[in-house]
């Protein structure tokens, strides 16, 4: 992937497919690291599946037998001397607190580290594609702290769908302004 933000878009799609009603995406830039955490309350994975998720020959898709999402993120993180961890609680064993947490650490000064890229576009794309589920996005750097919670937006909208173009445009500007201030 050309940007880490594209990995975020890709991995968050797994959360959506796992039936998550809330997906929390946090990007923490501190010293020379970027820590990406994608946490969802979806169905989670059994230990058996969890062991195989970073293997490209495991996938949930039915169109072909190769799944590159998590293996790609792992490779990209490890190329910077960083790491990828995946923790998961499957619904069968944890009926009340199931879900998955993907954590990737990148060393941003490493020559092989791809730029974070357009995270605003990733968030608007996720919301446009999945207007009925909630996303919490937090991006902290040494100079800014950007936050977006679709639950707050949904409350204001009182039934107007989140994928309404005017709403998507508002969200985009709302995020962009937080980066400037």
């Amino acid at each position: 992937m050309k940007e880490i933000s594209l990995n975020i878009l890709d991995i968050a799609e797994n959360s959506v497919k796992a039936g998550a009603t809330l997906t929390e995406i946090s990007v923490l830039e501190e010293n020379d690291t970027i820590t990406l955490v994608i946490k969802d309350n979806g169905s989670g994975m059994t230990d058996e599946v969890l062991k195989t998720v970073t293997n490209p020959f495991y996938t949930t898709r039915t169109t072909r037998k190769v799944g590159m999402g998590l293996p790609l993120l792992k490779l990209e993180a490890e190329m910077t001397e960083g790491s990828l961890t995946v923790e998961s609680k499957h619904i069968s064993e944890y009926p009340n607190n199931h879900g998955t947490v993907v954590t990737a650490v990148f060393y941003k000064n490493h020559i092989d580290c791809t730029p974070l890229g357009d995270v605003v576009s990733t968030m608007t794309t996720l919301i446009q594609g999945h207007p009925d589920i909630d996303f919490l996005f937090v991006h902290k750097t040494e100079s800014v702290e950007v936050c977006l919670d679709t639950r707050e937006i949904r409350e204001v909208l009182e039934g107007v769908p989140l994928d309404t173009y005017e709403v998507i445009k508002w969200i985009k500007e709302f995020l962009n302004e937080q980066y400037i201030n």
């Binding site: 992937m1 050309k2 594209l6 878009l9 890709d10 799609e13 898709r61 799944g67 590159m68 999402g69 790609l72 357009d118 576009s121 990733t122 608007t124 794309t125 446009q128 594609g129």
Partner: peptide, 15 residues
């Protein structure tokens, strides 16, 4: 918008 599409540049196409 699967991994293949996203990696190939689907995000700007969609937007």
């Amino acid at each position: 918008m699967a991994t293949c599409g996203i990696a190939a540049g689907a995000r700007p196409v969609l937007n």
